[in-house]
Amino acid sequence: MMEWWNNLYQYLADYFQYVSGYQEQIWKAIGETFVMVGISIAAALLLGLPAGTLLYLTRRGQLLENPLLFAIVNSLVNVIRSFPFLLLVVAMIPLTRLIVGTAIGTLAAAVPMSVIAFAYYSRLVEQSLLEVPRDVIEAASSMGASTLQIIVKFVYVEARSGLVLGLTTSMISFISYSTVMGIVGGGGVGDFAIRYGYQRFEYEIMVFTIIIMIILVQSIQFAGNVCSRLLDKK
């Protein structure tokens, strides 16, 4: 048994010594992933949250019922979400070049990711707000609250747990999307695994990057669950 443990220890020591040779590239890849995902999260909050709220407000029977506006925003969200992500990245190259001046690089990769973030999170926001009991809105209206006050002080408060879980789910999806951004030179952990692991047949590197992704996703999910539980007053 002792010999088995010694062999395992020696194997792990050799493995981490081998991986440490790529330390600089690994940290660079993690940083690129954080940049792409961070910009996507910002887009989800700044664009997806208002869009999802607008979808909720303009639905039939809601405070700002507007079938035409709802149909326009709903169709836009559906069209973006219907695009296979890789095709969306390629189709947006002209727009990406217009916005950031280039179609290659981490910032360029963040543009299509921000677009999908807007569409993805807006739908989750709409679903979370629809779960708020109608009684809450009626009570707020009876107290003379404006539409903005109803949304900010009542609906968002009631739906905050779901909004946090939706953002957590979105963040994990953004990490998944970031793994294919090597096609436009976006870099990231996924691109590192392909270039240094798969293409060079160094499967130890691929395994290590998979472990990194698992740890990252599990950490985000755990943090999201804790925040959601703390915010849930039901």
Rank of each mutant, 00 (worst) to 15 (best):
V37C: 13
V37S: 13
G38F: 07
G38I: 03
G38P: 14
I39A: 12
L47Q: 04
G48D: 03
A51G: 09
A51L: 07
G52F: 14
G52R: 11
G52C: 14
T53H: 10
L57H: 02
T58G: 04
R60A: 10
R60Y: 12
G61K: 01
G61A: 05
L63I: 07
E65S: 11
E65F: 00
E65R: 00
P67F: 00
P67I: 01
P67S: 06
F70P: 00
A71M: 14
A71E: 14
A71G: 13
I72F: 13
V73D: 00
S75M: 09
V77Y: 02
N78G: 14
V79P: 12
V79H: 09
V79T: 11
P84F: 06
P84C: 05
L87V: 15
L88W: 03
L88F: 03
L88K: 04
V90Y: 15
V90T: 13
M92Y: 04
I93Y: 12
I93F: 11
L95T: 04
R97D: 13
R97M: 14
I99R: 10
V100K: 11
G101H: 09
T102G: 06
A103F: 05
L107H: 02
A108F: 01
A108E: 06
A108Q: 02
A110W: 02
M113Q: 12
V115Y: 01
V115I: 10
F118M: 10
Y120L: 07
R123M: 11
L124C: 05
L124S: 07
V125N: 12
V125E: 11
V125M: 13
E126P: 13
Q127P: 06
Q127S: 15
Q127I: 10
Q127W: 04
L129P: 08
E131M: 13
V132W: 00
P133K: 04
P133C: 06
R134V: 07
D135R: 12
V136E: 14
I137A: 07
E138Q: 14
S141T: 12
M143E: 13
S146G: 15
T147P: 05
T147E: 12
L148K: 10
L148A: 15
Q149I: 01
Q149H: 07
I150S: 07
I150M: 14
I150C: 10
I151G: 01
V152S: 06
V152C: 03
V152E: 11
V155I: 15
V155W: 01
V155C: 06
V157W: 05
